[in-house]
């Protein structure tokens, strides 16, 4: 159970969110040029050296992580044919619901996440309305909420499993 892919799924999502943050930083200040004449229609994005490097590295890392993630997912599905995870499923795969004890733990974690979202989203919306925040900061705010929800969920579930093994 400790090596159950569903337990570690939030960690994967947190890593992807962090990477998305780096990518957002890299793409934040590109020089864009849009040409639309009778002879030419083009859209150019010019990146500075550091931003370009960050974008290149984060995209590369993103695909590398995606490959490992899919391999782990495939391994999980092979080892747990009754609890397969579809990468395209709408229902969050981190839910542990194989019996009532697991459902109870999941419900407790989801309640905490819900409480967090209930506070965090209106707070972010208020900040965006009241303050002239740059686009990157708004993106980071959204990513922070997404990161926070996975962190809360992971820590809550882990807490129960940690107590259980002691």
């Amino acid at each position: 159970m400790k090596n159950d892919f569903r337990l570690n799924y939030p960690l994967w999502m947190m890593a992807f969110i962090l990477l998305l943050g780096v990518l957002a930083f890299g793409l934040n200040s590109p020089i864009t040029e849009f040409v639309n004449t009778e002879n030419e229609t083009s859209f150019t994005i010019k990146l500075e050296a550091l931003e370009g490097f960050l974008v290149f590295c984060s995209i590369l890392l993103y695909f590398a992580m995606l490959v490992i993630f899919m391999a782990r997912l495939k391994k999980h599905n092979k080892e747990n044919p009754s609890q397969k995870i579809s990468p395209l499923a709408i229902r969050p795969p981190e839910y542990l619901e194989q019996d009532e004890g697991m459902t109870y733990i999941t419900r407790k974690a989801v309640q905490k996440v819900y409480s967090f979202i209930t506070l965090a989203l209106p707070l972010l919306a208020t900040l965006v309305i009241l303050l002239p925040l740059p686009k990157l900061l708004i993106i980071y705010g959204i990513l922070a909420i997404a990161f926070g929800q996975y962190l809360i969920y992971y820590l809550e579930v882990r807490k129960h499993f940690k107590e259980e093994t002691e």
């Binding site: 159970m1 194989q98 019996d99 009532e100 004890g101 697991m102 109870y104 733990i105 129960h160 499993f161 107590e163 259980e164």
Partner: peptide, 22 residues
């Protein structure tokens, strides 16, 4: 009883109250 080992552990610790069926 068709549940996971973890659920038994949660019940033993009193962390979780099982259903009437369980």
């Amino acid at each position: 009883v068709d549940v996971t080992r973890q659920t038994i552990a949660f019940i033993e610790k009193g962390e979780f109250s099982p259903s009437i069926t369980l």
